[in-house]
Nucleic acid binder design. Structure first.
Lengths: 215, 215
DNA sequence: TAGATTGTTAATCGATTAACAATC
DNA sequence: TAGATTGTTAATCGATTAACAATC
């Protein structure tokens, strides 16, 4: 659990919303100087109360009768999300998803730096994608230690995911972004985020079907 | 809102969990014949109560003193998620993410069929990726109508996303899977799912930083 | 000053867990 | 039958919204 000011515990849902606030303040910057919780809520599709309560976990950023200073808030959120710090990451699994993430430039814009790629396919080892070298997974543990890797992206097949995660964690990685279609067995409180693409597509299928039924 | 048996409304959180149940029943099939809510909860990392309540929105699938028949439940979930029906989709935006999704074979395994790709870059038009042709976005509206496209994946840059969504919806698409880093302006109750990769990475950054602080 | 808008507490709403009668 | 386990209702927990004093 993550404590905020006043010893309050920051709910997980609030943490998940933080990057969204950051995105909106990025867009607002340059357009307006200040914004009220009311207006921001309208733009983001949430309530003014939620905006104020969410932000209040991290500080008193507003000013009565004025609202929030856009430039200042964007900077505060950048600090909260550690955007100015370089966070080094690697990708395990150079399949379609892995390759795409290698070339995905938005990572760089958010302060993430790709240091290496890992796979088991012999024919890939030694190659480079976007000037990032592919190594054999057996070298991953040492690589993490030597290069002080912060984050591991897992895009290997489902059955290999847990072993990869285990190696990463044992080697001192600080967090995992998991694209494999399974829940990983990590220690309680180990930082992890899951991106289950097919799950999202299937939930969408359900929504579509359910909507058609009600017609 | 989506009604279930007994006129209960199915909470959105339950819908989002459905694909996860399906995944686990897929894995269990062949391994065991039956499973109790207790055991399933242990494997999935949720409570037995939640398993039973979640499933109860869709039917009485269990048997007292026995549990749930794995093969049967997997089939029920497949039907609930419409997996046996072919759902046709297109991808707007042939950047890194779009390309990766084009080659992502898990879509096919879940019953999704990619029918076309769309972009504005003239040099891409007419090319094919994985035997799927790239068209100009100006042709998208007609393509959707003529080919009865169910789902649109949006992987265009942020500023183009809303216009693409508008065209899709106007042309009768039934649902959108959005990878663009923005919330789309869709009608209330229009089926949509968002996959915000950078948001997830940034939330992970926060978790890592917060954990380090407490040490 | 008057109006606007914050940060926070209280009230409400929704989701999860516990309890248990029903029954295989 | 006895033990196991369901489906559902009630109790609890957590998240969202409403209300408002404080104050720019």
């Amino acid at each position: 659990m993550y404590k905020a000011r006043n010893n309050r515990i920051i709910p997980k849902v609030v943490i998940e919303r933080l990057p969204r606030y950051y995105r909106y303040f990025q867009i607002l910057e340059g357009k307006v100087d200040k914004i009220s919780s009311q207006k921001l809520g309208e733009i983001m599709g949430s309530s003014a109360s939620q905006v104020r309560l969410d932000l209040s976990y991290f500080g008193e950023f507003g000013l009565q009768g004025y609202g929030y200073n856009v430039k200042k808030l964007k900077e505060e959120l950048a600090n909260i999300l550690d955007i100015h710090k370089e966070r080094r990451f690697i990708i395990a699994g150079v399949g379609n998803i892995g390759r795409a993430l290698t070339r995905y430039d938005a990572f760089e814009g958010a302060g993430f730096k790709l240091m290496g790629l890992f796979d088991i396919k012999e024919e890939l080892i030694g190659q480079s994608i976007n000037n990032v070298k592919i190594y054999h997974v057996s070298e991953m543990g040492n690589f993490i230690k030597e290069n002080k890797i912060d984050i591991g992206i897992i895009s290997v097949p489902r059955d290999a995911a847990n072993e990869v995660a285990k190696t990463m964690i044992k080697s001192g990685i600080k967090g995992i972004l998991n694209f494999a279609p399974t829940e990983l067995d990590v220690p309680e409180d180990f930082p992890i985020e899951n991106i289950h693409i097919i799950d999202k597509a299937l939930a969408l299928s359900f929504l579509i079907k359910a909507k058609e039924k009600t017609k």
